[in-house]
Simulated assay, not measured.
Amino acid sequence: MRCPFCANDDSQVKDSRPTEDSTSIRRRRQCSSCGARFTTFERVQLREVTVVKSGDRREAFDRSKLEQSISLACRKRDVSADRIDRLVSGIQRQVETAGEAEVASQRIGEMVMDGLRQLDSVAYIRFASVYRDFSEARDFEEFASTVQEAAANERS
């Protein structure tokens, strides 16, 4: 593993343990050149999945892009990084175990929407505003009112 401090290719694993949700392995490493310590995470990848985007563009599924978009929706909200990571891991697991070599970006977007709806209503609305391409304040109002109605129905 390359050291992020000095770019040396040789490092030693000092400690390994599963993460809390057991979806990855956390490794503490020490660079053999500069002695710096850093953490890496190792995840299982079940299969290569291609995402089919609008206009039939195709690209490899990228967990970091998914994590970045969910983190952006949850920015300045009381949502822990651990909960975001669990949501991302759950979506990745669904995509990889679906048995398909290709998945539509809209399907991934719906999975994110479902997860954010349960995680945080403001993050859900933020993501929906980009995903569904809200163009006017009225779009926000209509969507927010449906979120409020759904929350009220769940409480009753």
Rank of each mutant, 00 (worst) to 15 (best):
E100N: 15
R117D: 08
R57M: 08
V51K: 14
A104Q: 11
F41Q: 07
S16P: 00
K76E: 05
S54Y: 05
A98P: 02
S24H: 02
I84S: 02
S89A: 15
R75F: 06
E42A: 04
L116E: 04
V52I: 15
R86M: 13
L72V: 07
T19V: 07
A73T: 13
Q12A: 14
K53S: 09
F127I: 02
K53V: 09
R29D: 00
L72G: 03
S71Y: 08
T97A: 09
R77K: 13
F61P: 04
A36S: 12
S69I: 15
D10I: 00
S89W: 09
R29G: 00
D21E: 12
T50E: 12
D15I: 04
R83H: 10
V13Y: 07
D56N: 14
Q30S: 14
R63H: 11
D114I: 09
I70Y: 05
V52E: 03
L46W: 09
C31R: 01
D78V: 11
A123N: 08
R83E: 10
R77E: 08
S11P: 02
R83G: 08
K53H: 07
I84D: 01
Q118R: 11
A98N: 10
C74F: 06
C31F: 01
R77D: 08
F127P: 01
F41P: 02
D21K: 05
E110A: 14
D85T: 10
R28T: 05
V44H: 08
A73E: 08
R58E: 11
I25N: 00
V49F: 12
M113E: 08
E67A: 15
F38A: 02
D85M: 14
R107N: 09
V44C: 07
I70N: 05
T40M: 00
A81C: 10
S54A: 15
R107Y: 06
V13H: 07
L66T: 12
C31N: 01
I70P: 03
S22M: 11
I25L: 02
A101G: 13
Q45N: 14
R43G: 03
A123Y: 03
E48T: 14
